[in-house]
């Protein structure tokens, strides 16, 4: 397989497989957000949905992860019926993008490539992505959309971000190792 350039890696190739993968990711994200969370703070959940961008990102790249997260959040809003809060959908999309950067630093889950080095980068990117998505993007949109008290808005977003980091590192990294190991066993042919 020829080496893909950066733009292709970021965008992912949108073939049928990607569409289906992103759709399943969005469905799971939505369902897990509605049914698979524990309340931490007002408007904030410790949610297992955060595992979805990890997998979609690992399989397809950052932009598919972004789409899966954004529409997953929209779907959660649709089946939960509590209305659309686009400030959070956008934040989740941005986070999905960062979490989905996996292929860019060399981790390739499809071929079973995921080392400790990748895990460390993944954890750092997860923290950075959360800081940006829920420390900057979501509060900014919340202020723009609804106005409000600055400290509380940031506090809410940051608890959301912190619980995401928790889920991403504590559950996400073992999951990535497990997936990589699983895929590696089917790729044991050596090219001569």
């Amino acid at each position: 397989m020829q080496k893909k350039n950066l733009a292709q890696l970021i965008l992912g190739d949108w073939n049928t497989k990607t569409v289906v993968g992103v759709a399943i990711g969005a469905a799971l994200f939505g369902v897990l957000m509605v049914y698979g969370g524990v309340k931490v703070f007002t408007n904030t959940n410790l949610t297992t949905a955060m595992l979805i961008p990890v997998i979609v990102g690992a399989l397809f790249g950052p932009v598919p992860a972004l789409v899966a997260c954004f529409f997953g959040n929209v779907i959660a809003d649709l089946i939960g019926g509590w209305g659309f809060w686009f400030d959070w959908s956008i934040g989740n999309g941005v986070l999905g993008f960062f979490v989905g950067l996996l292929p860019l630093y060399g981790a390739d889950i499809n071929k079973g490539v995921f080392t400790v080095k990748h895990a460390v980068i993944f954890a750092l990117v997860a923290i950075l992505g959360n800081a940006l998505a829920f420390g900057v993007v979501t509060p900014l949109f919340t202020l723009l959309f609804f106005g409000g008290e600055l400290n509380i808005t940031f506090l809410q977003s940051l608890t959301g971000g912190a619980s995401n980091v928790l889920v991403l590192t504590v559950l996400g990294i073992p999951l990535l190792f497990a997936l990589a190991k699983r895929n590696a066993s089917s790729q044991n042919l050596v090219k001569e």
Binding site: V19, V20, V22, A23, I24, A26, A27, G30, V67, I75
Partner: peptide, 8 residues
């Protein structure tokens, strides 16, 4: 993505 997700 939207319609397929709901189907799923």
């Amino acid at each position: 993505v939207v319609s397929l997700a709901f189907r799923y």
